[in-house]
Amino acid sequence: MSTYYTEDHEWIAVDGDVGTVGITKYAAEQLGDVVFVEVPEGGATYAKGDDMAVVESVKAASDVYAPVTGDVIEGNGELADAPETVNEDPEGKGWFCKLKLSSACELTGLMDAEAYKAYCKEL
């Protein structure tokens, strides 16, 4: 299993043709206290870059984009009642959804952990 990162601060952990998507630790810290998350429902299809989810703090609402094209297998329903999970464990229990990838070659455009770390340093 390998994890990729986008410049818009989403991560995707890929296992076979299934990817688990969330927002990065860096993003979660920048947002401040997350108070609401709207995750996609199973069955929905998104193209790479589509608005896929919404994450809200008290002072801002941010759209989360699909890092790759795919069909949603399931959304993380736990986040509805416990949005703070996104702050506590953004790259673990705070995942947003699982996607069935349409085209694995889209992953090549994304960053690995090292590259993303360097990218954040520049911000």
Binding site: D8, H9, E10, I23, A27, Q30, L31, G32, D33, V55, S57, V58, K59, A60, A61, S62, D63, V64, Y65
Partner: peptide, 12 residues
């Protein structure tokens, strides 16, 4: 994702 971080702390 869009990153909106302009703003204020909202918890004491």
């Amino acid at each position: 994702m869009t990153m909106q971080r302009i703003g204020r702390p909202t918890a004491p």
